[in-house]
Structure formats: C-alpha cells, structure tokens
Amino acid sequence: MMQKMISKEKISDLIKELQKEFKVFGPVKEEGVVLFKEITDAKEICLDYSNSKIPAKSVLFPMIDTLFSYKKEGKGVKIIENPPYEKTVIFGIRPCDSMVFSLFKNFFSFGKYKDPLVLNRLKNITIIGMGCLEPRTTCFCTSVNGGPFNKESVDVLITEFKDNYYLESITDKGEALIKKIKSLTDADKGDLAKIEKLQKDIESAIPVIEGLDGIYTKLDGLFDHPMWKMESQGCIGCGSCTYLCPTCHCFDVLDENKQDGSGRRIRIWDTCQFPLFTLETSGHNPRTTKLPRVRQRIFHKFNYYPKNYNIIGCVGCGRCIINCPVSSDIRNIFISVENISSKTEG
C-alpha cells in the first residue's frame, strides 16, 4: 500500500499527467446533470458532487455500444471489428458505483460466453475511486456489502481531507499508477490517522437496513405473495429506476444503416420494466402487467443474482429512490419482505 497526497487546487495537474497515458473519464456537470464523460479539458472535472445522475457504468456499458460494423458490397458483406480498447482511467467514481465493476466482471464472464466489450474495457481500466464524504439519506451501501470508502473494487482510493486529496493504492495496478505521477507528494502521516477516523465515522453513520443480507432466501417463498400488488400499483412503468441503476445491464440489439450500405450493429440500454422487453413475435408476453415487471427487477437483483453469482445485484446508491417519478422507495420493499418473513417464521 502506498499513500500519497495532492492539494485540491493542483488536481488538474494530476488529470493532465494521467491524460498523457490514458483516456480519462471523470464526473462532469452538463446542464445541471453530473455524468461520467471523457475529460478533454482537466478543468471540466467536477469533484464537488454527491453522486453522478447517470452511473459510471456508462463507461463500461455505454448507452449506445457498437458490437461491430459492416459494409455491404454487392451481394457480399464485410464485417469490421471494433478497434482495440484504449487504456483508460476512471477518476472520481464513488466506491458504491465501482462495486459494479466486479459485479459486471462476474456477470459478463458468466456461462459459456464472455462479453468481449465489457471485459476488454475492464482489463484496460484503472479505477481511481473517491471516498464519499457525504452519503445521502437514501444511501444504504453498508447494507449491501459496500461502504463509502470501500476498497473492494478500486485500484486507488482518494479521500478528501481539508485542502488535500489523499490517495491510497489498493491494488498493484493502482500502486504502479500512483508511483508514476509526479504531481503527488508523500502523504502527511499526521493526517492519516485522522482520515481513518473520519472514514469510520462517516461509514458508521449510514443507517443499516436489517436483514438485507438474508433477503435472497426470504424472497424464495414470496414470488406469488400479494405484496407485489401493493408494491407495483403506483408504478407507471418507466425505465428511470433501471436506466439510472448502476447494476442494470439488460440491452436490446439493433442495426443502424447508412445510405451507402455500411452500418453497425449496436446494443442499447433496455429494461425489464417495458412490456416490449419480453413481448414475443407471436404476441405472447410472459410479463404482461406491471406487477411481474416490478417483481422481476427485485428478484433479479436480490434473488437471481445471489443464486447465480453469489453477490447482491444492488450497490445501495439510492438512485432508484431519488429518481422514481412516483416516489416508490425500494427500501419499503425490503421492509415488507422482512415483515412478511418474520411473521411466517414466528
């Protein structure tokens, strides 16, 4: 482990140094919305944010992602593969969102087929996470195996302290990276203990949702429970909870053509909340109403994920709570599940 620091005002020097070797993605504010974008000008980076509106999954799994391109010539077709992915740094991602990287690694390499787009990106990405000094009241990361300074899925963890950023290398990749950066100085040893205390204080202040770690087995018996009628009656069936969820990764595949016979096959974000998601050409739809669609979202994250990959498909960022147009709160579902299962046990 290596600990370094940099004064806040010099942060663009650090970004500029990174840009020499990497594509750098970081939080940027556009029209009042914070999202992760490639940083072209080091000044653009916006580190005074609680969390991005659009999660940084968009770097690994962009809203529009080219699977391959093609060119039709006469009767023939030529397939053009994507260019290799460049070395990339994701700078300033919150530790909750970075959990998604290990989650995606699990999911996209699961089974017989590996997803080359996500996995190639993962291989080439170094993650510089930024500890979360001000968790929102909607955050519940510590209930889903995360934390505001969780080191599990970052290569380097930054903690803001007074006028400085403190950088701690977590992985070898992270250590190799911060060794190279000239604008960093050795960490002020006196502050390190204070930082550790600060981290602990912030983490312990986040309320814990009881029983969430055991929700997987509790859900097993609740598939046909009337609770889903209650939980889904206000849902209007939009995709904001899933599109803005850092772990949701379902997609649609389509072809885009240009006039000249060239084109590309792309995948775009799609969601289990739309009726079309499961509508078959025959007209049959296994999930025709909102109830099974709302239930699918919960089961996929909290039952199927643990069953298949032994992880919870939720990082506790609270985006679905903040962005739901009808103020549906996923924490209420946790409470219902807990209440129902404790009743049946008792």
Partner: peptide
C-alpha cells in the same frame, strides 16, 4: 421453450426466467 431473445448468449437479460436464461 420459446422466449423473446436478442443476444442468445445469456447477456441481454430478456429471456431470464427465475435464475435461468432460456437461451443459455
């Protein structure tokens, strides 16, 4: 089983039934 599928390799999520993917 017939299900709506897109990717065919267990990634796009639409043929998910329980913890299974029909395509996979």
């Amino acid at each position: 089983l017939e299900m709506r599928m897109k990717c065919g390799i267990g990634k796009c999520g639409r043929c998910n039934v329980g913890n299974k993917f029909v395509c996979l």
